[in-house]
Design a protein around this nucleic acid. Structure first.
Lengths: 123, 123
DNA sequence: GTGGATGCAAACTCTTTGCACCTTG
DNA sequence: CAAGGTGCAAAGAGTTTGCATCCAC
């Protein structure tokens, strides 16, 4: 399957260390602390592999560039801070939402995005 | 402010006629029925103006290219059909969601996206 | 008639891919 | 040592912008 390279390790560890959804560019900078001449193309290639292995999840929020985070076991949502622009995990969910749909629609999944100010920016 | 051109009219009418969120490319094809050599750049430029005027709303769903729809007066959400790939408006909302956030977070807005099969594709 | 709008093509951003070289197993 | 991974640069998709021309007011 996938070989264990310094690059792949650095990328997975950077994501795990930060513990928040990250942009490929941010991830590149973070991972370059261990592998200085890491390239952005390699970040993208490894992310793809890590996602297939279930180690990394894609976080795509409306109107935002795609971010990536270490895989979480629980269903969760995201909060986008309008001040610092960072994205935070929210481990809560309103639950069954199927009743909001018109008759005939079949609900398979849902995604909720919150916008506002994070705790750090509010303080 | 904004001049009333054949292009602008065609774009606004195409959007209103379809009554669903549309991709710029889809909108181009639809509006070209009235203005044959309409260009994609003009579609983008007019969308920007129509949005500023409050006539058109941006619909950006996670992992999807940005769509546009005629302005709706009510807060609403969107349903993305996994079969026909179209996007539908959902005029319902679970309501107050602030209690789902950790202490210190201030909620300003939220966006809910439903995924599944629309009524037409389920039938 | 004049300034804003249009069409075309080039520029930009984000992501992917081709290719020669390097590294893991 | 061979297969797969890497870095760099070029190629793609979606969107924006520069510029000469055109048209609404």
């Amino acid at each position: 399957m996938e070989r264990s390279t310094r690059q792949r390790t650095a990328i997975a560890q950077a994501l795990a260390a930060v513990g928040q959804p990250m942009l490929p560019q941010e991830l590149l900078l973070e991972a370059q602390k261990s592998v200085p001449n890491l390239s952005l193309a390699t970040v993208y290639r490894n992310l793809k592999g890590l996602i297939e292995d279930g180690v990394v999840d894609v976080v795509s929020l409306p109107g935002e560039a795609t971010r990536y985070e270490s895989h979480r076991h629980h269903h969760h949502h995201h909060f986008h801070c309008s001040s610092c622009q960072k994205v935070f995990d929210i481990d809560a969910c309103p639950g069954d939402l199927g009743h909001l749909l018109p008759p005939g629609y079949v609900l398979e999944e849902h995604q909720l995005t919150f916008y506002g100010r994070c705790a750090a920016c509010t303080a």
